[in-house]
Structure formats: C-alpha cells, structure tokens
C-alpha cells in the first residue's frame, strides 16, 4: 500500500460522558493518526457510537480534552467539525428520505457553497455556475460508488444496502479529511459487505482519508483496520494492532465471557 500513516491528528484525552446518572464513557483516551483506518469495537452498549458523537460534537463530554490538528478543545461543535473536514455516517441510516440521491449528495457539499438564498432564487450567474460546478464534483462521487443508475431516485425507495452506500456518498461529497463510519456494514449480506469494504479501502487509499470505523464484523475489522480500540461498558479495555487486540485476554473475556 502506497499510503503512509502520518502524525496523530486527533487525540482524545480522558474523555468522560454521562447522561444523568448513566455513565456512557469513562476516562477514555486514544488517538487517531492521519491516513489510518482506526476501528472502534466492543459489545453492544459499550459506548462506541457515543464516542463518535463526542468526536463530531453531537455530544459534549463532561470531562476530558480533545486535540484536533493541534487545537485543544473541551468539546467539539458540529458545525466547526463539519467545516474542519470531519464527515460521518450513522448507525441507523440518517439520510434525507424525501430527497433524491443526487440532492442528498449535493446537500453534503452545502458548506462549500457560498451563494445566498437570493442568488438561488434568481438562479442566475454565480448561483447557477456554483450549482453546476458542485454537480460535477458530486457526479465524481456517484461514479466512484457506482450509483449512477439511482441518482434521481428518492432515497426512501432504495433498498437498505444502497441507502448505506448513499450515506457514505453524502459523507464523501463533502471531501472530508476524516470519515467517521458508524457500522457501515450492519445488516448487509456478504457481497454488500465486500463492496463496502472495497469502497472504504479505496477512499482511504485514493484520497488519503483518515477513517474511524465502528464495526461488529470481526473478520472485516481485523482485515481492514490499522489499529483497533476496544471499549466495554464505557471503558477502554484494549488498544493496538488487530493481532494484539485479538489476543488480549480482556478483550476475549468481554466478547466471550470468562469463567469465574
């Protein structure tokens, strides 16, 4: 592989998050290096999605510090993170159901479009040129994900596997430098999973996008990720290369249970 794993660009330090009395995350620290594929795994309810929500500012941790590209922050803000090039997909597909695939992807690029609503209303000059220029970019993503045939279809009518792919497309349309994927392969059959793996690896390889991934399919995780962090009950129980994690007794205990 040509890609070079770079410096640490995202460093989470001692993050704790609770909802009322429920502790979702307790004192979690891990980092993400540029261009790597970083997996977060753990049993259900381990706090994996909460972790992603902390990274892109949907949740605000009570304790801890986040360092993103040298910038120290107490918590993140969704808009600032989108502007800084973090895009994500959701565990339960969060597409805009009433809009076509094309519109969903175009919406993904909204931050790059500068015209005001008055210019849009007139549809003249800059607004039109901007729309066409971004359409060209979006078509590249459509081409990359092989979804040309459904570009005008409302996403609500698409089958599940394709919706997952469109959601990846919406994230990619923003040309992110970091991509957070929350169970991109959940509920897919083997072929769909293979396709999705290929897309993820291609994105990582061709665009150098850093990928943080939550996934339950251990085969996939061990195959494609560079480093894996394991959570259980909101605590970090393992961190390292796939092979190390696989042989970590605590991780095995969390997944298979231990004999007492």
């Amino acid at each position: 592989m040509a890609r070079q794993i770079g410096e640490v660009i995202l460093d989470l330090r001692n993050i704790s998050l609770s909802f009322g009395g429920v502790k979702a995350l307790t004192d979690i620290s891990f980092d993400v290096r540029e261009h790597e594929i970083r997996a977060i795994i753990g049993p259900n309810g381990a706090g994996k999605s909460s972790m992603l929500n902390v990274i892109n500012g949907v949740y605000h941790p009570q304790q801890g510090e986040i360092v993103f590209r040298g910038e120290h922050r107490k918590d993140m803000d969704t808009h600032a993170m989108a502007a800084a090039g973090i895009a994500r997909t959701f565990q339960n597909i969060a597409l805009f159901k009433g809009m076509s695939v094309l519109d969903n992807l175009m919406a993904g690029r909204n931050l790059k479009m500068k015209c005001s609503f008055l210019q849009h209303a007139l549809w003249w000059g800059p607004a039109r040129r901007e729309e066409l220029a971004h359409r060209r970019k979006v078509e590249e993503v459509i081409d990359f994900l092989e979804i040309e045939h459904i570009r005008k279809t409302p996403v609500g009518r698409l089958p599940y596997g394709l919706q997952k792919r469109v959601e990846l497309g919406r994230a990619l349309a923003a040309e992110p430098s970091m991509l957070l994927l929350d169970e991109p392969m959940a509920g897919m059959n083997v072929e769909e999973k293979q396709d999705m793996c290929r897309f993820i690896l291609d994105v990582n390889d061709q665009f150098g996008t850093t990928i943080v991934l939550i996934e339950h399919d251990m085969g996939v995780v061990m195959d494609i990720s560079d480093r894996v962090v394991v959570l259980d009950y909101g605590r970090k129980i393992g961190d390292g290369a796939p092979d190390d994690v696989k042989n970590n007794p605590e991780v095995i205990a969390a997944y298979l249970g231990t004999q007492h």
Binding site: T78, G108, N110, A171
Partner: peptide, 12 residues
C-alpha cells in the same frame, strides 16, 4: 425536515 441531526452534522 427529514433528519435534523444529520443536517447539523453535515454543517447546516
């Protein structure tokens, strides 16, 4: 209208 959390996350 369709999904406000996702809208926020993509920067709207």
């Amino acid at each position: 209208r369709d999904m406000d959390v996702a809208a926020e996350v993509i920067g709207i």
